[in-house]
């Protein structure tokens, strides 16, 4: 009972597209997927000719497909971009070192220059060492905050004009949900943006060419193209909160495939009353990175690590910023609250 491709009507269909319900053969699927990313890029005016663009590469499925498609579209449609790969080494033995090997193979397969920046050289700490100090709670907070800045620092070193990341439709829908569940209005407004302008010193503009690409299609694209990607879960407990949002969305998607895009559209169309107070973005008085507080999140986390008070950057200890900047000692009570939990 093979189903014929609804586009060329000649070959056997290999997948049913979640977005459109169309049944397509391999070749028609590749073309449709690639040209949709191209239309996303054109409609969002994501790049300008002559720009140097870093592809954030983790070795996973999304960034591997992104690198492949960006290289292909840059040639097919003459974007005139100079592409390179930018990877972050978090210092997680048995996880990141393996996935970085995948990135190194990708570098050869796609013939793109590769730059790897590490937490160790940027912050003086590997994730292994951080987990040793703080345990398996809040480690994803450290990793997420550090990665965001690490990409910017790497991009500055490479003097690129822009970073593109492999965030797909499923990721963005998850983030919309998580921000709703947390009541984080500022992030909710930002998270559906397909690109961000430079928000200040040290922040490189970013964009998400796979914003409307379904995870199912990304995985099948990689599978049918036999792309080389790495898939293992991080050895340090997965981000549990995101995990729940993810499971919930996947359950919805199995009943109604358009659920993913629908959630994104809901996020895009939210408008916030003028009277809602939004955090004012300034810059960190220590490192200059964008921050709505006196110290940026990374500097607070780092200060906490270096002082043996890992909870310093977790939660909202804004009152302490002034003390830390002026090197005043913390009270005993303040220190006690910020120490790692004793088991």
């Amino acid at each position: 009972m093979p189903v014929q491709c609804s586009s060329c009507t000649e070959k056997r269909a290999v997948l049913k597209r979640p977005k459109t319900g169309h049944s397509l053969c391999k070749e028609c699927f590749f073309w449709a997927f690639e040209e949709e990313v191209h239309r996303t890029i054109m409609a969002g005016e994501l790049f300008k000719p002559g720009e140097i663009v870093a592809i954030a590469a983790s070795g996973g499925k999304d960034s591997t497909v992104l690198a492949h498609v960006m290289k292909l579209l840059n040639q097919r449609h003459n974007y005139g971009l100079e592409l390179m790969l930018l990877s972050v080494d978090e210092g997680i033995t048995g996880y990141r070192d393996d996935s970085l090997e995948t990135v190194q193979r990708n570098q050869q397969q796609y013939e793109l220059p590769l730059k790897i920046v590490s937490y160790k050289e940027l912050y003086g700490w590997t994730m292994d060492a951080i987990v040793k100090q703080i345990g398996l709670k809040n480690n994803c907070t450290f990793c997420g905050v550090f990665r965001r800045q690490a990409l910017d620092r790497g991009a500055m070193l490479l003097k690129v004009n822009r970073i593109c990341t492999g965030h797909n439709a499923d990721d963005i829908a998850e983030t919309v949900l998580m921000n709703v569940l947390r009541g984080d209005i500022a992030r909710l407004c930002r998270c559906t943006a397909i690109s961000t302008a430079s928000e200040g010193e040290g922040v490189v503009p970013r964009c998400k060419p796979l914003k409307y690409a379904y995870e199912k299609e990304i995985v099948l694209y990689a599978y049918f193209k036999k792309l080389d990607y790495f898939s293992t879960e991080c050895i340090y407990s997965p981000n549990a909160y995101r995990g729940h949002a993810r499971t919930f969305l996947k359950d919805l998607e199995s009943i109604r495939p358009s659920a993913i895009i629908d959630v994104i559209h809901s996020g895009e169309n939210l408008s916030v009353r003028d009277s809602v107070k939004m955090p004012v973005q300034g810059s960190c008085s220590r490192c200059g990175y964008i921050s709505s507080q006196m110290l940026c999140k990374a500097c607070m986390l780092l200060e906490g690590l270096n002082r043996g008070l890992p909870k310093l950057g977790i939660g909202k200890p804004h009152r302490l910023h002034e003390k830390i900047l002026s090197k005043q000692p913390l009270t005993e009570e303040e220190e006690r609250k910020l120490k790692p939990a004793v088991f």
């Binding site: 093979p2 056997r12 269909a13 199995s254």
Partner: peptide, 15 residues
């Protein structure tokens, strides 16, 4: 489990 893709002889099981 939703999120696991199934291919039967290299075609999406939904077909």
């Amino acid at each position: 489990r939703p999120g696991i893709l199934v291919l039967i002889n290299d075609a999406d099981w939904e077909l």
